[in-house]
Design a protein around this nucleic acid. Structure first.
Length: 474
RNA sequence: GGCGACGUAGCCAAGGGGUAAGGCAGCGGUCUGCAAAACCGCGAUCGCCGGUUCGAAUCCGGCCGUCGCCUCCA
């Protein structure tokens, strides 16, 4: 067994990198905040889930056994509003978007969580948690609502680095006279007529947003977990409130050992969000690009940094991906012995090491990818010289393995251009046969016409000593 | 107003005290019937000003600019 570098992760709570030591190795309990399912996911969501998928995959590769829980928020103001507008039940609305979301995650090769709790199905656990908070004096009831008593929690603000006084000063929240403190947040909301509701000790109502994650995390992962993740926009108030609820309820600190947050995706200099309306949906991207290109785009920068979406960046990712694909192609048949083959094996081992060093430093995928591009270049260079041997095979295996650790899907079909390629394969094969005959007869004009016209259709032909290769280009 | 992040070649981006990974684009070349792909070669002194240091893109201070959070949000 070779030894791997110590893994360190940046913890939002302490604002520094820390050695990664889960509570009970090799188990890692990871909770990632899921979407509120009232609309289609945009690429900002996609980015976040690709990031945490990469993190999970790397942990698993390092031998950890990750238990991954991700919620669906299916009870919430916007859901109620939207379903009323569309004249459908909230269940039909949320089910529709949950189904779509899971399909998109599959398309992006994001591993499914082990459990996907729905807020609406955890009401009993939520009520129990709220009752506990009331008993301990951390919550109070007003007209069927229940609020968390922020002033009672000495630690409030520790995640986001805010003090109660600062928050009050800049508070933009509407003042609700019934609350003891403007910053107290709702654990339970009394139902208004016509709204979905559940029975509770405080009358019919529904859970507040923050409480569901505390309840689900507690229910499926226990009182203390290793990793809690989400977008940086969730740090305050959502995750701050989760800490308050969970730690006050269980009396155990820390609720979460490592808080991890991904930087937000920007579009045109602004955060992409549903409320700003400046969004690109995941479907639009999946229609236009290889899902691996989306992943490469995301992993090309460090996960904590904000990234700006541009068509150019995406095109760059798509093109870069094709270099990796080229490096994974089967080696040519007629090979030559060469001394460089042994050097290539060495290169593969160095790359593996560089990869682990980069990834161990708070998942530095951008640096890791740099090493993989170097390896890909070496492989392609060897192919060009036809010096193929065991080293070449090892290098290809290494490249494939490490790209898969990052979550790239490297099937033959994917590399060729996805399902679209499979659909047109028989016809393309026919045209290539015809063109090959023309080339034998040196009828270049006609042969080139076929190639050009196929290119217009997005099908690229490449003549190689092993015959004509093709793939779909986007 | 409070808290925080960032500013590196045309674009994206890593690094973070000893003279700048990688990707895309571009240019030149090899290969090719021509292409494509691939490979080889070519580019930056790191927002501005000042300080610390033998030495700073990397540390400190100030300034300018961009962005995020403080309200629903991955």
């Amino acid at each position: 067994m070779e030894t791997k570098p110590q893994l360190v992760v940046y913890n939002t709570l302490t604002r520094q990198k820390e050695p990664f030591e889960p509570f009970e190795p090799p188990y890692v309990r990871m909770y990632v905040c899921g979407p509120t399912v009232y609309d289609s996911a945009h690429i900002g969501h996609g980015m976040s889930y690709v990031v945490f998928d990469m993190i999970r995959r790397y942990l698993e590769y390092r031998g950890y056994r990750v238990r991954h829980v991700q919620n669906f928020t299916d009870v919430e103001d916007k859901i109620i509003k939207r379903s009323a507008e569309l004249g459908m039940t909230w269940q039909d609305l949320t089910n529709r978007y949950i189904e779509e979301f899971l399909q998109q995650m599959d398309a992006l090769n994001v591993k499914r969580a082990h459990v996907y709790p729905y807020a609406s199905r955890e009401i009993a656990e939520i009520i129990e948690l709220i009752e506990g908070l009331i008993e301990k004096g951390y919550a109070y009831v007003v007209d069927g609502d229940v609020y968390f008593r922020v002033a009672k929690d000495d630690d409030y603000g520790k995640l986001s680095g805010r003090r109660l006084e600062d928050l009050k000063a800049g508070a933009r929240v509407e003042v609700d006279e019934r609350k003891e403190n403007p910053l107290d947040f709702a654990l339970w909301k009394a139902a208004k007529p016509g709204e979905p509701s559940w029975e509770s000790p405080w009358g019919p109502g529904r859970p507040g947003w923050h409480i569901e994650c505390s309840a689900m995390s507690l229910h499926y992962l226990g009182e203390q977990i290793d990793i809690h993740g989400g977008g940086a926009d969730l740090i305050f108030p959502h995750h701050e409130n989760e800490i308050a609820q969970s730690e006050c309820y269980t009396g155990k600190t820390p609720f979460v050992k490592y808080w991890m947050h991904n930087g937000l995706l920007q579009l045109g200099g602004e955060k992409m969000s549903k409320s700003l309306g400046n969004l690109i949906t995941l479907d639009e991207i999946l229609e236009r690009y290889d899902p691996n290109a989306f992943r490469l785009f995301v992993l090309s920068s460090h996960y904590r940094r904000p990234v700006t979406y541009t068509d150019e960046s995406f095109a760059a990712a798509q093109r870069g991906l094709e270099r990796f694909y080229a490096a994974l192609e089967h080696p040519p048949a007629n090979t030559l012995p060469g001394a460089n083959d042994a050097a290539l094996a060495q290169k593969a081992r160095k790359t593996h090491k560089a990869f682990d060093e980069a990834m161990s430093d708070d998942f530095n995928t951008a640096l890791a990818l740099g090493a993989l591009f170097d390896l890909a270049r070496a492989i392609n260079a060897a192919r060009d010289t036809r010096e193929i041997g065991p080293g070449f095979t090892e290098a290809q295996a290494t490249l494939r393995e490490l790209l898969e650790v990052l979550g790239f899907r490297l099937t033959e079909e994917t590399r060729r251009g996805g399902a679209a390629a499979t659909d047109v394969a028989p016809l393309v094969a026919l045209l290539i046969d015809v063109r090959s005959e023309l080339r034998k007869k040196r009828e270049w004009a006609l042969a080139d016409l076929i190639r050009d016209r196929l290119a217009e259709q997005g099908i690229a032909l490449e003549d190689t000593p092993e015959g004509t290769k093709w793939r779909v280009r986007t």
